[in-house]
Design a binder for these strands. Structure first.
Lengths: 338, 338
DNA sequence: ACCTACCTTGGGAACGTTCCCATTTAGATT
DNA sequence: AATCTAAATGGGAACGTTCCCAAGGTAGGT
C-alpha cells in the first residue's frame, strides 16, 4: 500500500474490472453497470479509500466542478452573508467555490480573474470592484457562464442579481414619510464604480422630489472620513420646522453615520436614521436602528441558479429572480417623539 | 483562432520552439533560457493570451498551487478577518485559497475535507468544527501540510496557531482588577469542541483564584439563548460590596451579553464588561465596550508560514509564531463610576 | 437457426502539463 | 587540435481521468 492516493486503475484492478467501468461508477452513468459490478467496485473503492482526482477530471473535459466568486470587500458583513448564500447553493448543486477577495482594487481583480480562469472554473459570480470588461468579455466568449452581483459592468451582456434598489429606496422613503419626517439627507459611498449605489442615488433624487421632500445628499469619501461630520452637523442644525432624517445607502454608510451622530451628540429618533443592510449591532445601538434587510441567502441562490441556467447541457431552466425585495425592520431610530 | 484557450503547444509553435521551453518559461527555470528565446516566447504567449492550465499542471506533480481553508463559521466577523489575513499571505506566496465554511457541522466538515483532497490542495488550514482526526491523519500521511487555527484536534500532531489564550485572560483580569472590579462572571460558548475556549476557561478559573477574585462562569447554549438572562440577573443583583464585571470569551458571547444587559436594563460600567474579539460596533454601544483585539492579519500570515515550512523542497525556515498576544482597547464599559 | 438490437463491458486515445533524459552547441582546459 | 564540461534546447513518457468506439453477450422477432 502506497502512502499516496489510490487511482482509478488501482480500484479497477482490485475489483477485477476496467478503468472505464470504475469511471462510470463515479460519474452519471452508474446505473449502466450491472448491480454485481457496482457492488464489487464500491467495495474496492471503499477499501482503498479512493477519491477521484478532480484535477485529472477537469483536464479531460469532465468539468472541474469549481465555481469562482469575486468579492469586492470580504470584510463587509453583507458580502459575507451573500458568500454564505452562494456557497450553500453551490454545494447543493455539487460545486465547490473559490472565493477571491479584491479589496476593491481593480488590479487585484484582474489578477484573481486570471487565476480563476487558470483553474478552469465552470462559472463565475462577480461582485465587481472595477470595470473588468475586457477580461470578462474574453471569458464569456470562452463559454464561461457569468453572473454579476449587485454591480453591473458596462458594455457587458450579463445578468445582474441583487437588491431591488428602486423598491428599497421607495420603501425607505415611504417609511420616513409615514413616521412624519419631511427632510432627508441621503448618505452614500462614492457611486462611481458601483451601479447599485448609482441606482439608489438616482431613485432617491427622483422619488424625494416626487414626494415633495426637502432633500440633500452626502457622498462619503473613504479618504476623508471626518468630512462627513460638518455636513451632518449643518443638516441637523439647519433651522426648519419639519422633522429631519438620514437615509444611509448601505451598511458602511450607516456605520459612518452612527459614529458621526455620537461624535456630535445627536439623538436618533429626533433626527431620524434608516439604513439599507441589516447588521448585528443595529438593534444594540439604542434606540435601535431601523434597517432594510437584504435577503442574502435568496440572492446567493439566485446567482447560482442564473449560472446553472447558462450551462449548455442543462435541460430545464431554473426560475431566477434578478431583483429582490428587502424587508423593513422598524426600530427606534425612526420614531419621531411626540 | 479557436474560441477556446490557447495551450502550451500552440505557444511553442508560434514561437518556433518546443513545449518544454515554453513550460520552462512559465516555471521556476525561466533563467535557463537564452534571452532571445525568452522574449520570443513572451511575445507569442502575449499574442495568444496564453494562461497555463493549472489543472494540467496539478496533475503532473507540478503542484496545484491551491491551498484549502476550513472555517467553522464564516459569518463570524472574527473568522472573516482571519480568512482575509490568510488570503493575503497565500497570495503573496503565489497560492490561491479555497475557503470552505462548515457552519460548525462535523458532517459538512468531512465532506469539505474530502473535496479539498480531491482538488489536490497542497496545504490545509483548519479551523475545526469537530474532531476530524482520522481524515486529517490520512491527509498528513499523504504528505499534505496542515496548520490548525485556534482549535486543536486531539491525537493529531499538528501545530495550532492562534491567540495566546493564557495571556489574553491574564490581560483581561489584570485590567478588570486595575479598574477596581473584584467579582467576575465569565461567559463562554460551550467549550467542548473548541480547545481555545477550553484554554481560556481553564486559565480563567486558575487566575481568578490566584488573584483572589469572586468568580462564576456561564456557558451559553445556542439552543436556549435566553437562559443567560436569569443568570446575569442573579449575578447583577447578588448583594455584595465589591464591583462586579462580566468577561466574555469571544465576540458571540459579547453580543449575547450586550443583548442581555439591554434586556435587563443594566448599565455597562457600574457592571463592568470586557470581551475578547474586537468588533465594529464595540465603540458604538455606549459607553463603548472594552475589548481585547486579536491580531488577525498576523495570525493569518503565521498560518501560511507554518504551512510553507512543511513543504519538503523549501530551504530556509520562515519564522513562525504560534501564540499571538492581543491588544487591549479600553473603553467605557470597564470604568467603574466613582 | 439467423439477424438485429440492445445492454454491458473494456481498450485506447486524448486532455495540457511537467519531468527525465538525450542531443546539440559553445566555451574552456589539456 | 582534441577532449571535456556546461549550458541550452527538444523529444517522449507520464500524470489520472473521460470519452469514443468496438466487442461480446443476451434476447426478441422473423
Amino acid at each position: 500500500m502506497s502512502s499516496s492516493r489510490a487511482t482509478l486503475i488501482e480500484v479497477a484492478k482490485l475489483a477485477g474490472t476496467s478503468k472505464t467501468s470504475v469511471s462510470r461508477f463515479f460519474g452519471p452513468e452508474r446505473d449502466k453497470l450491472s448491480s454485481v459490478l457496482q457492488s464489487r467496485i464500491e467495495q474496492a473503492a471503499q477499501s482503498l479509500g479512493y477519491q477521484p482526482n478532480l484535477m485529472a477530471r477537469g483536464l479531460k473535459g469532465g468539468g472541474s466542478r469549481l465555481l469562482g466568486m469575486l468579492v469586492a470587500d470580504i470584510r463587509n458583513p453583507f458580502s459575507v452573508a451573500i458568500v454564505h448564500g452562494v456557497e450553500l447553493a453551490a454545494r447543493a448543486h455539487g460545486y465547490s467555490l473559490i472565493v477571491c477577495n479584491t479589496d476593491n482594487d481593480p488590479e487585484q481583480e484582474q489578477k484573481h480573474l486570471a487565476s480563476l480562469a487558470a483553474y478552469q472554473v465552470e462559472g463565475l459570480i462577480i461582485n465587481a470592484a472595477g470595470q473588468p470588461e475586457p477580461q470578462l468579455q474574453a471569458l464569456m466568449k470562452g463559454g464561461i457562464p457569468l453572473a454579476l452581483l449587485d454591480r453591473e459592468v458596462r458594455q457587458l451582456d450579463a445578468k445582474v442579481i441583487g437588491l431591488d434598489n428602486v423598491l428599497a429606496i421607495d420603501m425607505a422613503l415611504d417609511h420616513l414619510v409615514q413616521q412624519g419626517y419631511r427632510s432627508v439627507l441621503y448618505v452614500s459611498e462614492t457611486p462611481e464604480h458601483a451601479s447599485a449605489r448609482l441606482e439608489r442615488l438616482k431613485r432617491f433624487n427622483q422619488q424625494a422630489e416626487a414626494l415633495g421632500l426637502d432633500s440633500q445628499t452626502l457622498v462619503l469619501s473613504s479618504l476623508a472620513e471626518h468630512s462627513a461630520i460638518p455636513i451632518l452637523k449643518a443638516f441637523a442644525e439647519h433651522p426648519t420646522t419639519v422633522p429631519k432624517a438620514v437615509l444611509c445607502a448601505n451598511g458602511n454608510a450607516t456605520l459612518a453615520m452612527v459614529r458621526s451622530f455620537q461624535h456630535l451628540g445627536l439623538a436618533m429618533g429626533p433626527l431620524g436614521l434608516i439604513g439599507i443592510d441589516e447588521l448585528d449591532w443595529c438593534e444594540l445601538v439604542l434606540p435601535g436602528i431601523t434597517t432594510l434587510a437584504q435577503p442574502t441567502d435568496v440572492i446567493g441562490h439566485a446567482a447560482i441558479a442564473c449560472l446553472l441556467n447558462q450551462f449548455p447541457q442543462r435541460a430545464r431552466e431554473l426560475p431566477v429572480q434578478y431583483r429582490h425585495p428587502p424587508t423593513l425592520i422598524t426600530r427606534g431610530s425612526t420614531t419621531f417623539p411626540g
